[in-house]
Design a protein around this nucleic acid. Structure first.
Length: 480
RNA sequence: CGAGGUGUAGCGCAGUUUGGUAGCGCGUUUGGUUCGGGACCAAAAGGUCGCAGGUUCAAAUCCUGUCACCUCGACCA
């Protein structure tokens, strides 16, 4: 009977291999990360999901501060006239802007956009705040939500409203702006890999794929377990594209008026989607220890027996005192087996079982979420054991994901090979640089160019699509 | 936005073809026995059938619209 129930429960999660999208939706719901709301395309993020965001946010924010950025808060509403100032920008965002047209009972003289991104309002303020080269650079960031009227939405991957951070900086020189753009890309790369254990390819976007209004866009691209690409963060160099229409001018050392050079960069709650689809398995979510709301769950076994509950509590307290995020699961209405499955579904990296037999021997049973490896460990010094284990889980998750990504990336030299490869991964190819070739590949295989890696060692001489001489190495993939 | 599918109790589903006043399993509550991988017995609570109109003596069931989710396209930093 127990066996049968277990099977029934596990069946609630659609197998990854059978239907990856459904699996994703199942995991997101069953792990209790979010819920749907009455607002079209907008989700509620529940405590367990929001805690992941908070942990991610804390660590990323520390990096922003370390690299000299300050947090600010800008209005959520942007007058239409500001949005219209940069032509490419308007064109790119117009189809997905939500508008406020009325204040109270009075129609507005000028309608206000609910920000889809805040370049225009930052630029407007920067123009007021900068007069001299001595005022530069300004390196500001804000954590906020933005709204884009998306036609189709999926939890965490694409929602009408989403949480993100957007950094906006202005600099005196083109060199400084480019340096900033690259620095923040590196911050994102390291963050994805070291904190989220999500391996990424980084590089420059093609003109077709770059941000509306940018001179150059760089991105970090992750690979999900269905082989599709997820753009996980972007860093843009605008040059003076915005500072000219917005007149962000300063008096330079040489006594002349110059336009400032601007950058922006952002990551969003989409990163939570990246974690889920990079690491999850048939049992559900698998969280990297660095962003796991609970790094360890302590489950007492045969808790009714004398001393067990106290012994398990002592183990939990000891780990918490060592700075580990611990959940002590002393619920008496579910069995230990139930708890094991539930915490696996919720992705807790390490589980510790404490029962009468363990306590008698001064031990506790540790079980890793990544390998399911079980071991009886001494309670004496358990905090060191667990800290080392968490570090190893973090590392192993990254290595596993990187191996998967590498296995699902291949050099291709013909359109046929490309079409085959993008069915389950990234195709690395030579490209002539013409948008016509990107369009053709997209039409044939629904795959787009993801980015041009910084290592441009050629893998051939001709464009994978048109056969003309090619000098650019680029990744193609189907993207979320 | 186009094509297809789904929506009935917290979760998973049956009932819709042929209209007749809603059912099953799990979960929940209470009591008891259990407890090292999703326990068992007993009793109980829980649904205006996604929402809004319409047809009808009568609608979960038929018609229209709408919303949400899933799949495949289109579109999209």
């Amino acid at each position: 009977m127990a066996k049968k129930n277990q099977q029934e429960f596990v069946q609630h999660i659609t197998p990854r291999s059978e239907d990856f999208s459904q699996w994703y939706t199942d995991v997101v719901k069953l792990a209790d990360l979010m819920d749907y709301t009455p607002v079209r395309g907008c989700m509620a993020i529940k405590p367990y999901g929001y805690r992941i965001w908070e942990l991610l946010q804390q660590q990323l924010d520390a990096e922003f501060k370390r690299t000299g950025h300050e947090n600010v808060s800008m209005p959520m509403l942007i007058p239409e006239s500001l949005l219209l100032k940069e032509a490419d920008h308007v064109e790119g965002f117009a189809p997905e802007v939500a508008w406020v047209t009325q204040g109270g009972t009075e129609p507005l003289a000028e309608r206000l956009a609910v920000r889809p991104t805040s370049e225009t309002i930052f630029c407007t303020m920067y123009a007021k705040w900068v007069q001299s080269w001595r005022d530069l650079p300004l390196k500001y960031n804000q954590w906020c939500s933005v709204m884009r009227w998306e036609k189709t939405t999926r939890p965490f991957l694409r929602t009408a409203e989403f949480l993100w951070q957007e950094g906006h900086t202005i600099h005196a020189t083109a060199e400084e702006a480019q340096e900033e753009t690259m620095q923040m890309l590196e911050v994102y790369r390291d963050f994805c890999q070291d904190v989220l254990a999500v391996p990424v390819y980084c590089g420059q976007k093609s003109d077709k794929e770059k941000f509306a209004g940018a001179r150059a866009t760089y991105s970090v691209e992750a690979m999900m377990q269905d082989g599709k690409a997820l753009q996980s963060g972007t860093s843009h160099n605008f040059g003076t594209n915005f500072s000219e229409p917005f007149e962000i001018k300063f008096l330079d050392k040489d006594g002349t008026q110059k336009f400032a050079h601007e950058t922006s960069w952002g990551v969003s709650t989409r990163l939570i989607g990246a974690i889920i689809m990079t690491h999850g398995d048939e049992r559900g979510l698998k969280l990297p220890p660095k962003v796991a709301p609970y790094q360890v769950v302590v489950v007492p076994v045969a808790a009714h027996k004398p001393g067990v509950l106290e012994g398990a509590q002592a183990v939990a307290d000891k780990l918490a005192a060592a700075g580990i995020r611990v959940r002590f699961d002393d619920r008496d209405n579910v069995t230990p087996g139930w708890k094991f499955n539930e915490w696996e579904l919720k992705g807790v990296p390490v589980r510790i079982e404490v029962g009468p037999r363990d306590l008698a021997e001064g031990k506790a049973m540790t079980v890793r979420r990544d390998t399911f490896e079980k071991a009886a460990m001494d309670i004496e010094g358990l905090e060191e054991t667990v800290l080392a284990m968490l570090e190893d889980v973090q590392k192993n998750m990254f290595e596993t994901a990187r191996a998967f990504r590498d296995e699902h990336t291949a050099d291709v030299h013909t359109l046929e090979e490309l079409g085959e490869q993008v069915n389950g991964g990234y195709a690395k190819a030579m490209w002539c640089g013409e948008q016509a070739c990107e369009d053709k590949v997209k039409e044939m295989f629904s795959a787009t160019t993801r980015c041009m890696p910084f290592d441009q060692t050629p893998i051939g001489e001709t464009c994978v699509c048109c056969g003309k001489p090619a000098h650019k190495v680029i990744y193609f993939a189907k993207a979320y």
